[in-house]
Design a protein around this nucleic acid. Structure first.
Lengths: 228, 228
DNA sequence: CCTGTTATGGTCAGGGTGACCAGAACAGGA
DNA sequence: TCCTGTTCTGGTCACCCTGACCATAACAGG
């Protein structure tokens, strides 16, 4: 009988870099590899609920996830050599940097890995086909930033336009022109709205920047296309 | 135990309209509703293989599918009142119009329905949550036509630019300017390439049109954005 | 008060786009 | 043969978006 599981790629921004949460597999014969937090789907539970439970039980993440989106489903017959497991992969975005297991915690060890580095790992360093899932998740975020407003889900509100630009630069891996970025963001209706409160300077000093919050828009018109 | 199934939304163009293939559910208590062709996943078979088998066994479709792409997975605990079934939905595109069961054929009855009409059906006219799957499939094709070259998968080659434009008009449901459409298609590298052979006039007469075939490109730069 | 840094606003040329026009190339009928 | 209707094909033009770039504003710190 084929079993159904959910695996979650939880991404966040930390120190200007895109990161992904990895955990140690529970089974002993996968020691030395890393995997995404995943759980079997219970009979009475939705797929989304399973995803949240996997984050809670395996990574101690309670609720900081602001966005949860289905990625795709991986069902190669031999992807798990022990049994037939069809896995529904999820993409999750955290609005705050991830803390890799502060102190003793139930469950396996967890690490926060740099996404760009993880893409260069040999696939065997991952359990199952999780290398492909991680790669698909990263590509999905890169693409979603072009056409949707979910970059704001990777930031605590309120935020400056420089911080929002930092999200794009972290995910896409390259610098963006501050003036042009500002022009495009403000020209897209509903992307961000001004937040009350004083302007605040960044860590490098300079003129304090106005703060904004996420607007109501989900899709961006026009899109924020990255260079190819 | 939760079971895994695959449901396929097979779309095609017929007489300038986008169509979707529907079949009668096999279980008797769903009589009067329509469903997508679907099958349980066998232990030794990949999800893609299950999708092709569903089309073969339930609709008599052998191989005209030029494109098969995973849509998303539907896993609400009560989507099938009889048992817990997690369904991986697929989008399939046919390069030729679908023939609704020519003569006696094994398997249940099948119809080719107009996509625009089906979107207006009450959800109860579908079995399970297949109304949502059909709607997602149609929206996926509409979106894919903007950013990818898969419109050529809905046409037999070689084709004229008017026929390609007809695909866009059928899927998006509105007229496009022939001259501007032509300019954009030809300006997108690798979208189409000229095909050998003479030009041919359309059904309404007029100047014969040059024929083209699909180029090697999969993504369109720049994109063919539809009106919103 | 000066310097360094960042935010913010503006200019300018180039490319993509929609609206539109006009000739080219046929079929079919007078 | 000539005319008409249709569609294909190529072109123009104004408008918007974009990237590259410059200038000024507004702070912190020496």
């Amino acid at each position: 009988m084929t079993a159904v599981a959910v695996d979650v790629a939880l991404l966040a921004i930390e120190a200007g870099r895109l990161t992904v949460l990895l955990v140690e597999p529970e089974s002993a014969d996968l020691a030395g590899t890393w995997s995404l937090p995943g759980r079997r789907v219970r009979d009475d539970e939705s797929l989304d609920t399973t995803a949240l439970r996997a984050l809670r039980e395996l990574a101690g993440i309670e609720r900081p996830t602001l966005l949860l989106e289905q990625l795709r489903t991986y069902g190669a017959p031999t992807r798990d050599p022990r049994a037939r497991v069809v896995s529904v992969a999820y993409l999750a975005l955290s609005g705050a940097p991830l803390h890799p297991a502060p102190g003793p915690r139930p469950g396996p060890r967890a690490v926060v890995a740099d996404a760009a580095e993880v893409l260069d790992w040999p696939p065997a360093r991952f359990a199952y086909d999780h290398a492909a899932i991680v790669a698909d998740a990263i590509e999905r975020v890169r693409s979603r930033l072009e056409y949707t407003a979910l970059a704001t889900a990777l930031l605590p509100a309120p935020f400056t336009l420089a911080a929002l630009r930092g999200v794009y630069e972290a995910v896409w891996g390259g610098p963006l022109d501050p003036a042009n970025f500002r022009r495009k963001v403000l020209a897209t209706p509903g992307f961000v709205v001004p937040a009350p409160g004083p302007a605040v300077a960044g860590p490098g000093g300079g003129r304090p920047a106005r703060r904004y919050a996420a607007g109501g828009a989900t899709r961006l018109h026009p899109a924020m296309l990255r260079d190819r």
